[in-house]
Design a protein around this nucleic acid. Sequence first.
DNA 1: AAGATTTGGCTGAACGTTCGTTCAATAGAC
DNA 2: GTCTATTGAACGAACGTTCAGCCAAATCTT
Lengths: 227, 227
Amino acid sequence: MDQARKASAPVTRVEKKQATRQQLIAATIEVIAADGFADMTLAKVSQRARVSRGLVNFHFTSKEQLLVETLRSLTEEYRDAWRKAVAKPKTARDKLLALLRADFSPKVCNRKKIAVWYAFWGEAKSRPTYLDVCAPADAAFADMVERLCGEVAEEGGYPIDAALAARGLRCMTDGLWLELHMTPQSFRRDVAMRTCLQYLAAIFPKHFLGSEFDHLTAAALETEAEA
Amino acid sequence: MDQARKASAPVTRVEKKQATRQQLIAATIEVIAADGFADMTLAKVSQRARVSRGLVNFHFTSKEQLLVETLRSLTEEYRDAWRKAVAKPKTARDKLLALLRADFSPKVCNRKKIAVWYAFWGEAKSRPTYLDVCAPADAAFADMVERLCGEVAEEGGYPIDAALAARGLRCMTDGLWLELHMTPQSFRRDVAMRTCLQYLAAIFPKHFLGSEFDHLTAAALETEAEA
DNA sequence: AAGATTTGGCTGAACGTTCGTTCAATAGAC
DNA sequence: GTCTATTGAACGAACGTTCAGCCAAATCTT
């Protein structure tokens, strides 16, 4: 039954439906990144997705739900990224490094998606639905960072508060995302990584004080695929 | 000519005009904090400011300019706050501490105003006018933090990159603001302060490793005047 | 000093536009 | 032939903006 189908060309109806649905979400991300949350319009979304004006209300019950599903898509992509990153390494130290690398990887950390994240965050207080979508994932991420910092702290016997250290690291990465959003010309991935690494090296010197800095100027971090 | 006038009751026409202008900006902040940027409406603003519907277009040429002036007001208030904080202490160490205390003071760091900040940041990419308003002030703040970190680093002869340390501190405070915005129930001023202080103590141990932590649990930090 | 006149902040209704949503008609996959 | 994803026109609501009129403060006149 299951023939060999490429992901590029959906043939069955349910596949096609799911494809256009994803297409609409992708178009929503592009429109928000380009025009902002307030000027995001279903007409613009349908135009960018190359579909008719009324199709959005067929796939999504309302504009609001399209936005919720867009945020859900972003949240899941981010969660999958850091879960995959943290799965490979063995030690807590290397897991933390992988987490940072994932946080600044071009797939999740590019101007377009950061703009959409901040657009949603800007509306978060007035629309609790958005919080319901991403809060569990954010809490899971915070737990993971705190657990890893706790392990490293225990290993090294550092006289610091691991919860505070984890909070500081999370907030620092969020702030670095903000720098990419507001002053992209002054943002560089390797600088962002080194900023976090200097912090980690200061609180966990035995684990992070080393030649790690040299690796991160490598060209691998500089490839900026804004797709 | 100049009679003794209280600031509470403007009598002359120009005073009254300036007062209602400020009233409209204050109402704008409240509406954005309550309903979000996308649902902010001139009707809501005029209703909250207790003025008629068409008055906004008398004081401001358009809705867009009302928003720009609101952001300008917010930016100047924040700039004045950290300038005043940094003026009193003598040493770079104490100036940094005062900067942090100002950053988390209830006057600038409360749910309402943080929500408005993030609302504007969410629209920053698509409306460069907003960036023009706050970019100079942000740059001045960044310069100040970097200068102070540089002084402390030189004093202590710490083997770290002062620019990276300053960037890390700025991003950490921005991220802590985001925490207040997204998960206000898990935010506490003293915890935010301690998060930053643990960072400073780690990179500048001779300057910030001390009994500073105890002070910050004082009730003075806990007074949350969300006005 | 007091009335007369001008000035300017302020009102609220009206207008034109834009947006989200609905729905009958259509075309292509099953 | 049936079902369903898709179209595009149409509708109603909501929004930003405009404007003629109003009233009190400021200025001028006597």
